[in-house]
Design a binder for these strands. Structure first.
Lengths: 189, 189
DNA sequence: GTAAAACATCGACTTTTGTCATCGTTCACG
DNA sequence: CGTGAACGATGACAAAAGTCGATGTTTTAC
């Protein structure tokens, strides 16, 4: 599984990283079941996770305590509550596994060490941040400019695998739609 | 007006920046009227703007060519289409002034030079990115977890000055609500 | 393997949100 | 300082989205 992380890193920083194995050894390999809680809001987010296999849900609660999903992140991507991780302040979001996962976690201190010993790694952080931001921008634009039906079409076009892989309930909460409405709209396509 | 930018920078990097004036001189001072177009989607975003005075709207069009507002940015903040600015790819968003503005613009090349000559400035970029991201995260969460009425209440709590300063039409498009609906809901508060 | 729980769909109904037309009001700009 | 365009409010109606209960299906967990 570490192979996935290795490929991810060399894909970004190139092969000329002679201490790559040392870098990889800093990460903690975690195997989880489905539905495991990785972060609870109010706690401080200690890790950035690289997902080698599986899928994570980043979510908050609305005023009626329904889960609402800010993001769904799949393998070959990074996931964290970056704002808490970066600042050390309590997290405002929750993270849990949606499927059994293979994760590689790195805590703040090791991340810091990594950046100092491998300066290029600063780039990786910037890339994680930029990718997260880009993702957010697109997502906001779907909300301000699209109806529920159009958001479903959008998802089918840009993240089609989610439709088959993830439960309807979860997808509905990702799209900000009630699950019954989602079920009906989907039937109309 | 450059004073605002100076304060912003020293507030983040401290006073121990001996070449601060040189740094400041890199920025291009721009005075605009209201309703000036700073960026058109499809073009490459050449600048990051620091807003010393005034207010900018970042927007896209929905399928019926209505403007939908991804962000409203006021003075003492940075504004850009970071994804285009960073990658050199065409922008997917538009930016215009909402009020007469005093801006300080920096292009990509100067930004690069700046980071090389004043390494701490890399931090500023990271901060801009992080602030933009944080903002986005909150915004997504309001969309997935709140009704139109609750989004209005949210805005009144967290960005109350916008309610008095900005036209209802613009606020409605920022909240992803039809302007007539916004008018009615506001009356009910 | 099986029982319990979670999930998906659907119909009937309610609430919320959107649309359109109208009518004062305000405000930008010459 | 006047005027035309943009703005804001509102009523009537339409469409979209949410709620609830029922039912059959799938999944999970022991």
């Amino acid at each position: 599984m570490i192979r996935v992380l290795r490929n991810h890193i060399t894909g970004r920083l190139g092969n000329d990283l002679d201490n790559l194995d040392k870098v990889l050894s800093i990460f903690k390999h975690i195997t989880t079941k489905r539905n495991e809680q990785l972060l609870q809001q109010g706690d401080i987010c200690k890790y950035v996770y690289f997902i080698a296999k599986g899928c994570l849900q980043v979510y908050v609660y609305d005023k009626d305590f329904n889960e609402t999903t800010r993001d769904i992140v799949v393998e070959d991507n990074w996931c964290s509550e970056l704002l808490s991780f970066g600042s050390g302040k309590p997290a405002t979001e929750n993270i849990r596994t949606v499927e059994p996962c293979e994760l590689f976690a790195i805590d703040r201190q090791n991340f810091q060490t990594l950046i100092e010993t491998v300066p290029q790694f600063d780039k990786v952080y910037k890339q994680i941040l930029e990718a997260s931001y880009a993702n957010s921008v697109y997502r906001i634009n779907t909300f301000v400019s699209m109806s529920a039906l159009d958001r479903i079409k959008w998802l089918m076009e840009y993240r089609p695998m989610l439709m088959t892989r993830i439960s309807s309930k979860l997808i509905a909460s990702y799209l900000g739609i009630n699950k019954d409405v989602f079920s009906r709209l989907k039937a109309k396509l």
